[in-house]
Design a binder for these strands. Structure first.
Lengths: 267, 267
DNA sequence: CGACCTGTTGATAATGATCAATTAAGGTGG
DNA sequence: CCACCTTAATTGATCATTATCAACAGGTCG
């Protein structure tokens, strides 16, 4: 069984086997957190680096008037705060959306990893991808039409979840409520609801509960103006053409019904 | 004369004198680019790392329908693409807004810098601050009211320009058109225009041409819900309380009228 | 069963976008 | 220095879109 971190880093990097082994050794088991747990709060000082092993979490910021903006999703293999030893305080919060398994790494662990050049580079890459995603989101929220915003985030979550083995074929579990989607794309829940309805009517997606199927991926990506290049996968181009490579379960760890399932193969 | 890079990095880090000297040695003179020059284009492959020494540039993405989203401003001391050797292709473009002086650094130069632990950490810090700014922008565009969006970006540019010596007291040159502001905060130019008018009427800002004065900084930051913590300056808290520390000229290198002036002191 | 959360719907109200001029400012060339 | 040109800022009127409000349906969970 390959840790999702390794799987994730291998999306954009090649790593010597020894580095993968080291990662496995350092990462260990992690603790299981119920949905809704605050993992990190804005203003927190550095202590540990948190890494999501299972489940889905999100970053967010709040406004004084109570409005919320979700500024990132964390899927298995994503670091919450790799930079915690460089920036003194968190400028945003992170909460578990589903049941999550999260490891806490000490500064010494991180140092051990970054001593290996390939690993240091891979970790850097992962933080740069986070930044690239933010840029694309800003474009999404600032300049895309509402329907396309929603379609775009659906595409992104599909690609990212697929990359860590949480899609089967063209189906995956959309692990968030419409209200959360609204807070990620800068709309109201009503608008998100109608955007999704429109997408269903146009047969761009099919929905059974929270399981979403994309019958025609090129059609959806075209509608959303989604180009996976910004995810900086090594094989991003190929994936778009032939995207049914996901081999594992859509439900593991991401549903309301906590799943214990760990059988997903790493890609 | 201290290079703006050094000034910038010292905002959030302490560096040994030797590291500052090395930076100076590596950075050198740079080339002068006229306003509007495309510095880097989306899809470009890695070649050099670009660093802005003078002037103002911006990152942006375009939509197929021609809409533009500005996703970052680069002030003196900012790197355009520090990560160019990690990510294969640029996922956005960068253009000079005013006349700019830009240096191109080879991979070997960067390697030389990152061999020094303090410098490596400082460069990492600078890239993390870029990311933090993106998060705040996403909140701005996604969830703040139009007037406050505009006020917020005015605050940010003031603080960042002040930090590199481009403010005098509470005045600075806002180096962009209203149309560019619109593309950064996700509004139309008409809305931005009216927001600025409102801010003038409320005496939150005063404008003479492109020179903006903030008569009451706490009032403006309160209105904008601007908390400089996300810029991760070491002294950010203090700056908010006592912000009239800028010592240099508001116009150097940032106006339509190209300024040759280099006398600004580093802070 | 009843409380609660999520998704859905229709009606209405605001809010920004759009459109179309007009004014202002800066830069150029005669 | 002035006429002229271009770009940027400003204005008012109108339109479209999205937010808001309110209510209800379906499911889950004690």
């Amino acid at each position: 069984m390959v840790s999702p971190v390794v799987a994730k880093l291998l999306r954009g990097n090649t790593l010597p086997q020894a580095d993968c082994d080291l990662l496995h050794a350092v990462v260990g088991a992690g603790r299981r957190l119920p949905p809704g747990t605050e993992i990190i709060n804005q203003g927190d000082a550095a202590e540990f680096v948190h890494l999501v092993l299972e489940g889905l979490a999100y970053r967010y910021k709040l406004l004084p008037n109570g409005k919320r903006q979700i500024i990132g999703y964390l899927v298995p293999g994503d670091f919450c705060d790799l930079y915690t030893f460089v920036l003194e305080r968190m400028d945003h919060s992170i909460a578990a959306r589903s049941e999550c398994v999260v490891v806490r790494l000490k500064e010494a662990d991180i140092a051990m990893l970054t001593e290996r050049p390939a690993l240091a580079r891979a970790l850097w890459w992962s933080s740069l991808v986070d930044e690239a995603i933010l840029r694309e989101w800003l474009l999404n929220v600032g300049r895309r039409e509402p329907d396309r915003r929603v379609a775009h985030i659906v595409c992104e979550l599909f690609f990212r979840l697929q990359a860590v083995g949480h899609a089967s074929g063209n189906s995956f579990q959309l692990p968030v409520t419409q209200s959360e989607l609204a807070d990620t794309v800068g709309l109201t829940t009503v608008s998100v609801n109608r955007a999704l309805q429109m997408m269903r009517r146009a047969n761009l997606i099919t929905q059974v509960g929270r399981i979403i199927t994309i019958p025609d991926i090129p059609a959806l990506t075209a509608f959303a103006d989604f180009d996976p290049a910004y995810l900086h996968f090594k094989t991003a181009g190929k994936r778009l053409e032939n995207p049914s490579q996901g081999r594992s379960l859509a439900t593991a760890g991401l549903g309301e019904t906590p799943a214990r399932n760990r059988e997903h193969k790493a890609v």
